[in-house]
């Protein structure tokens, strides 16, 4: 899952897709944690997943707000274009 997320992160140029792949990666990491916790039969894995969840939520909120601003400002969601343009 993580690899898939990494791949798509590198490939896609649309900003939204970038964010989505980030979510995928986070999720995959969380999955790994939960599996570990289940393996050792402790609650720790789930706790960490909870934190990851919180972080992802905050990040998505702020990130999407930023995306709106970028769109308004630059008029495009192309990551490469954003890199080249000067504000």
């Amino acid at each position: 899952m993580f690899s898939l997320g990494l791949t798509s992160l590198l490939v896609r140029r649309n900003l939204l897709f970038v964010l989505m792949s980030l979510e995928v990666m986070l999720n995959a990491a969380g999955l790994a944690f939960v599996v570990a916790g289940s393996r050792w039969q402790q609650a720790d894995g789930q706790v960490v997943f909870l934190f990851i969840l919180a972080v992802a939520a905050a990040e998505v909120a702020v990130g999407l707000a930023l995306v709106f601003q970028i769109y308004r400002h630059f008029g495009s969601l192309d990551v490469d274009k954003l890199g080249e343009m000067r504000g």
Partner: peptide
Amino acid sequence: LGAPFVAALEVIVYAGAIMVLF
């Protein structure tokens, strides 16, 4: 895997809130 709590959380928070935002 035996983690019902996070299963629920995943559905409610991740799929329910974050993805809705997206």
